[in-house]
Design a protein around this nucleic acid. Sequence first.
DNA 1: TGGGGTCTTGTAATCGATTGCAGAACACCT
DNA 2: AGGTGTTCTGCAATCGATTACAAGACCCCA
Lengths: 359, 359
Amino acid sequence: MGVNPPLSIPAYSTMVRKPATIQDVARAAGVSTATVSRALSNPDLVAGKTREVVFKAVQRTGYRVNQAARNLRMQRAGAVLVLVPDLGIPFYSKILSGISDGFSATDYAVLIADTKGRPLQDTELAGYFTDGRIDGVISLDGRLSRESLENCERQGVGERIVFLCEWVEGTSFPAIRSDNAHGARLAIRHLHDLGHRRIAHATGPEGNVLTIARRDAMLEERARLDLPARDEWIIRGDFSVESGHQAARRIVEMAERPTAVFCSADTVAFGLISGLLEAGLSVPGDISVVGFDDIDMSQYYIPALTTIYQDRHQLGRRAAARLMERLGPSAASTDGEAGDLIDVELVVRNSAALLKTGD
Amino acid sequence: MGVNPPLSIPAYSTMVRKPATIQDVARAAGVSTATVSRALSNPDLVAGKTREVVFKAVQRTGYRVNQAARNLRMQRAGAVLVLVPDLGIPFYSKILSGISDGFSATDYAVLIADTKGRPLQDTELAGYFTDGRIDGVISLDGRLSRESLENCERQGVGERIVFLCEWVEGTSFPAIRSDNAHGARLAIRHLHDLGHRRIAHATGPEGNVLTIARRDAMLEERARLDLPARDEWIIRGDFSVESGHQAARRIVEMAERPTAVFCSADTVAFGLISGLLEAGLSVPGDISVVGFDDIDMSQYYIPALTTIYQDRHQLGRRAAARLMERLGPSAASTDGEAGDLIDVELVVRNSAALLKTGD
DNA sequence: TGGGGTCTTGTAATCGATTGCAGAACACCT
DNA sequence: AGGTGTTCTGCAATCGATTACAAGACCCCA
């Protein structure tokens, strides 16, 4: 006696304890598992005294509800999936942060999948639902196949899909999005106010809904203001910096050069400005440029970028809220539609200037 | 007879069918659920004929294994958690894409949590494990509390944590990271080769391991090259564009101004350059600047940024692989350590130039 | 004392998979 | 025919929770 226990037996405190189950708590509290469950999830149903005893036992055992078991029993997955067209694009980061925020107070986990590397199979999305892997989807990807969506509706989970930023034309899923058309109009009007008449547009990828919304509104506004139009002033691209860089080359070679360019994204504007400078043109001296998005970098670019601000964090939060609302017990179907369009603002900085009168 | 069924009863094809369970398949195939399970997960154990019958039944019923049930039975969560200090920072986007790739071939889901909004409680991380919510963690956040980590080890899940980019000093968790010291040396040598002697450094946030690694290596290399040192040339900041912008102000006011600045991140460099230009100094004419990271924007910034390239996608993939390896059945503990340090490269562009000889 | 109501609790089924164990079926050899 | 071995399959327990149902405890009032 008086000797320490043999060293080969680890001290109790360092032993790997298996996590306590509801059984352990029940035993410790001297009640049934049903009572423990109720005390935790529906405290009103158990007597005050018992409740105390159970809580103490929970403390003592360090019990935490096993989510896998809980979800199985409750026939839910406890997770939502966010589909991102390309995680490598900085535009999405703040949106994700907003979504993440939107779910932080709930017990939903946020799963993220990049659809760039490997686009979804037609049955895959519906599969995640029947899998028991997810309860809902927020899609930032507007190119989901119709097949995918139909499969989901066939499974009866159409109500659990929400689009964000992009959407699929001709479907009726909720789509939280910025007022793209208004943004485009603001940009064109601003350039018009600065005296510009020959205005070009560097578009996003062909077929993309944002490309269409912004281009169409741009064309309309330009027509409304009686500005000249030339086909070559609509320059196809995608939302990448690289495509802006290429657009610069095209512009430099044009016979009748525009004096201003409205870009479908800030990244495009960066590439464009960089390309124009390489060609010896100055911005905004020779050509004015307006972007779209107002990403973090824009205010520190040189020149600081005049652009259309999208509240990305807000977009993310709103989409999260919208999905929650539809996953909840009573899906008041048509309600809330009003809030799905988020306002944008013109942010005036230094990349667009008064047209030189000598022109 | 001859009339259609009443319209109030939906046609079978449009009815919401509950997903098929393993029971349904067993019934359809005329075997037991055990056989179905084995046919799917361990085909060698069932006779070829039976296997066929089961596969057909699976086809017919559209069965998919319910992951929640499977995970519960197998005592795993089927998910890994990625802790991101701030999802709003574009630097992380490509890393996430790499991680996502790394897990795409597995049946692990990727959960993402932003630790900026609400830092983790000490018991929270360990809680996610005992919860049955996650099997492993990749932390991009080096400021996890020691308590958090100790709690995990107490639960016996210390083996399932991998750090990425950042790490916690004094612990022995695997940490996939760039060779930060080498990067800093490359930057300083490059500036030295260009003739610069008075070299400043805009650091990251105080206490951050990357800040320390890059600064210490910078100081060493500067000493090794016998370059002058002044305290005010080490300018504290964080990794934000804003902090670079502030650093510019400080530099402008210095009595003895450096001719070159090594920035702890590209974003800092952007802010710095923008600030210097506002103050009437040109880059690289008056001051040369080198960044760190080589994010997408850097090659299109004006001037295009000379910087240290980090292979972010690779970092992500590698971390994913490392975690998988540790979650697997036989955790060969010490192996693979060698591959945890990822090489960096100097990318020479236009923001750092030969020192003007008149200086 | 007995009947009816309200609170509180426990028993046991259930969610949908996996797997140890044991028995059935079959082959092969003497 | 009988013994031995291998291959295949099914029964039933199990993972850890939730919850319908029933029963016990207690109170109140006629």
